[in-house]
Design a protein around this nucleic acid. Structure first.
Lengths: 147, 147
DNA sequence: TTTAGTGCAAACACTTTGCAAAGTA
DNA sequence: TACTTTGCAAAGTGTTTGCACTAAA
């Protein structure tokens, strides 16, 4: 589980470049980071690298199945290693905290959607918005009390 | 359930304008449309209306609790009437089709997240990505067959 | 050497802003 | 009339593209 990535590139005729390595490292280190964050990280180690390279590389790495992305709300997509276990994201609307959950948390939903709608859920991209435990304590929350 | 919206505006000191009515009508008619689609719809009926007005109006209507938005993947946010029953979105990665489901489809998930993580799910914003029945038929799908 | 990858700058899509003119109350 | 809302045009984000140069194989 060390440098298989460069084999993955070469195997498909792509070249191994420092930029690609840096991007992959940044994705690994940051975990669900946005392209901009990845850029910042890479830029720190190699000032010359351009944003467009970040985007192009992310696209390539995703295509190769090395990384994936999810959408955590408004902003930019978030990238993480595909090798990492799939996980469900819990995003708190109040504090913005992102929690990762084992995919089986969604199992009942997945099963229900499959059986009732023939829909095959992509669990790795499942993001649930709401209010986390801490924020619910702090303020009653929109779901508990209504008008 | 007819023109309560104009009362909602006036009650808060906002003015009732044709633009606002048109935007609300477009949101109602189109259902989970992007700002651009709403713009197109409004523009058809009143050529003079500007995009910026669409954005400003959507923001206002959302703030007033008349409409809400969700993110259905990459693109622009999607707006729909808040008055409409909450629903879960199923988005097919292949054909892009969006299916609306009654929120109780997610009930087991909601309960599990609440009990196990103290997380209060915002069901109305829940979007599930995956492959729909038709597309699964057409092509094996990434979940069924692997390498 | 050959061909793929990169930096750069310009182009893009989407959204926001300032301001003067127009419209609601 | 007084003050909100709009249209317009320009400025901002975040992302993509064309092209000549650089570098991997």
């Amino acid at each position: 589980m060390s440098q298989t990535w460069d084999a993955a590139l070469r195997a498909r005729g792509y070249r191994v470049t420092p930029q690609r390595q840096l991007v992959l490292e940044a994705v690994t280190k940051l975990d669900h980071a946005s392209p901009e964050e990845i850029f910042a990280e890479v830029h720190q180690k190699a000032t010359g690298v351009n944003v467009s390279t970040i985007y192009r590389t992310l696209e390539l790495l995703e295509q190769l199945g090395l990384v994936t992305h999810t959408h955590l709300g408004h902003g930019a997509p978030r990238y993480h290693l595909a090798a990492e276990a799939q996980h469900v994201h819990l995003v708190c609307r109040d504090c913005g905290r992102v929690t990762e959950l084992a995919p089986d948390a969604a199992q009942p939903l997945v099963t229900a959607l499959d059986e009732e709608h023939g829909f095959e859920t992509d669990v790795g991209h499942l993001t649930v918005f709401g209010t986390c435990r801490d924020c619910r304590r702090t303020r009653p929350g929109p779901g508990a009390t209504s008008a």
